[in-house]
Amino acid sequence: MTGTVQGVGFRPFIYRLAKAHGLSGYVKNLGNHVEVLIEGERADIQNFLIDLPEKKPPLARIKEIKVKTITFSGFQEFIIVHSEPGIFENSIIPPDTAICEECRLEIFDPSSRYYHYPFTVCTNCGPRYTTVRTLPYDRENTTMQTFLYANNVR
């Protein structure tokens, strides 16, 4: 898949979609495109492909989807594979965006743990272009690097 698929929550979206359809395989960031290998029943794969453009993250722009049949690999689950370095020279980083309605509601809800928290952003809103230091657009390559989860696992 090619398009604006980096820095918009695309890999987690693919992960959730594959899991919802009972598929195994992986998704990998390759700059302006992602590689997705899915295995499962034909009907589940077809439904995945139907849902893909309809349910994509709001900031994602899918330019092209290429489908290729390959030999069964036997994946037991669906995983997100780490980005490969060195292939991101023409990557599209989406522009910074205004806060989305979901985040706005969260920061003004007194019962929310993010009540009045000034740095609330999600994959649907917030800075992208101004926070990236280098490509690929992974947390460790942004100004948010210090907010990696415990043991450097994202």
Rank of each mutant, 00 (worst) to 15 (best):
N124W: 03
G25F: 06
E64I: 00
E102Y: 13
R133Q: 14
I50P: 01
S24W: 02
N141G: 08
L37K: 14
P127W: 00
G25A: 08
G74D: 04
C100S: 04
P127G: 02
Q46K: 15
D138L: 12
P57Q: 04
E64D: 09
D109F: 12
G31S: 14
V132M: 06
P127S: 10
N32D: 15
Q145P: 00
I14A: 02
H116Y: 13
E54G: 00
S73N: 08
E54L: 15
V5K: 05
V81H: 09
E35Q: 13
I38S: 10
A18K: 01
T143K: 15
K55T: 11
I79F: 00
G9D: 12
M1K: 05
Q76Y: 00
I80K: 01
P58L: 09
C125F: 08
D96W: 06
V36I: 15
G74V: 07
T134S: 11
G40E: 11
I38H: 08
Y26C: 01
A43W: 00
I99H: 03
I70R: 08
S73I: 05
F88R: 02
V27D: 03
H33L: 08
T143G: 02
V36P: 13
K55C: 07
N151W: 03
A18T: 01
F88S: 11
P58S: 13
